[in-house]
């Protein structure tokens, strides 16, 4: 099965890259439902193998960070990390071979492993193009670890892969990239906030000097907790995240980006469940940003979420009474 999927990917990915569409667009419904997290994990594993060869070629250090402490992950949460993977491979592709792929778009539907697989395959194809352009002859990937894999395993693997690719980048993921993710989260939050009358985006809090990525990370975790409360009120399940204090204090902009990406995925899902349609907003390149800028922007999101949780709570109480 894995080998068959691997060949499929080898054939499909370049074609998908050329036509610029979603790699799953040609799949039948049956094929889509047959894809399992284990299949996705195998593809991530293979991608990581190829990235490792590029790392070795480039002489860059290996990522030694502990896997992120998440549980109960769903495919919809994995696909955002896979989209990040595509972003990073895009950036790496430009830095190494000047080739830039299309910006990955998360489909607006219920995400299944096949969708995640398509996104990972897209990233894998770009990795191969990079290797080809260097030029670097890739060795085939070994068989992935045996056993069934869950979306949580896939999530952790994708995050680790993202961290590794970030090390390979000359222009690493920075507060500016986090800023864009937070802006996307604000757009989703505004969409959710639009269920009730009133100002959807509150005034930004004061800018505070000297904030560092861990401060932003901590504030984003607070936001995630608010989203969890909102999701609980709306009977929506989201993943469980357990982050050690050392992980927070040692957080890099890339880690902050990952957690911001996770936040966007969760908010997007809540938004989709509650509103049905995503916001027609994009995150624009904001230029150079420092953690204090991002911290301030997360403050806006935090205020939005506090309002939303309060409003949803009031609505539920009124509905209950």
């Amino acid at each position: 099965m894995n080998r068959r999927r691997l060949w499929t990917c080898v054939l499909v990915a370049p074609v998908s890259l050329l036509i610029g569409g979603a790699p799953t667009s040609g799949q039948t419904q049956q094929e889509r439902t047959e894809v399992t997290p284990t299949d996705v994990f195998a593809e991530v594993f293979a991608t990581a193998h190829d990235v490792e060869q590029i790392r070795f070629y480039m002489g860059r250090p290996r990522n030694h960070q502990e896997p992120i402490g998440v549980t109960d992950v769903a495919p919809r949460e994995v696909i955002y990390q896979a989209a990040t993977l595509c972003e990073k491979t895009n950036r790496l592709g430009h830095e190494l071979i000047r080739e830039v792929g299309e910006k990955p778009a998360v489909p607006d539907k219920d995400i299944v492993p096949a969708d995640v697989l398509g996104m990972v395959e897209l990233a894998h194809g770009r990795v191969r193009r990079i290797a080809q352009g260097l030029p670097l002859v890739l060795t085939p990937a070994p068989a992935p670890p045996a056993g069934e894999k869950t979306p949580t395993d896939v999530y952790r693997a994708v995050v680790q892969l993202n961290r590794q690719i970030n090390i390979l980048l000359d222009r690493r993921f920075s507060p500016s990239d986090v800023y864009q993710q937070v802006s996307l989260a604000i757009a989703h939050a505004a969409n959710v906030r639009g269920r009730w009358p009133g100002q959807r985006i509150p005034p930004e809090p004061d800018w505070e000097l000297g904030k560092r990525p861990p401060d932003v990370y901590r504030r984003l975790l607070g936001c995630l907790d608010l989203i969890r409360r909102l999701a609980a009120a709306e009977n929506v399940r989201i993943l469980e995240l357990s982050v050690s204090e050392s992980s927070i204090t040692g957080a890099t902009p890339s880690d902050v980006y990952d957690i911001a990406s996770l936040l966007v995925s969760e908010l997007a899902y809540v938004d989709r469940v509650l509103n049905g349609s995503p916001p027609e907003r994009k995150a624009w390149y904001p230029g150079r940003k420092v953690p204090s800028d991002v911290f301030q922007r997360v403050g806006i999101l935090e205020l939005q979420l506090v309002q939303i949780v309060g409003l949803a709570g009031s609505e539920n109480r009124q509905g209950g009474s």
Binding site: G194, P197, G198, R200, I201, W284, Y285, G287
Partner: peptide, 22 residues
Amino acid sequence: TTKLDDLAESQWWVGDVAQTPG
């Protein structure tokens, strides 16, 4: 009221993006 909220949000995004390189 809803449209005003839409407008406020729209203006927020316009104002937000206006002075960025993006």
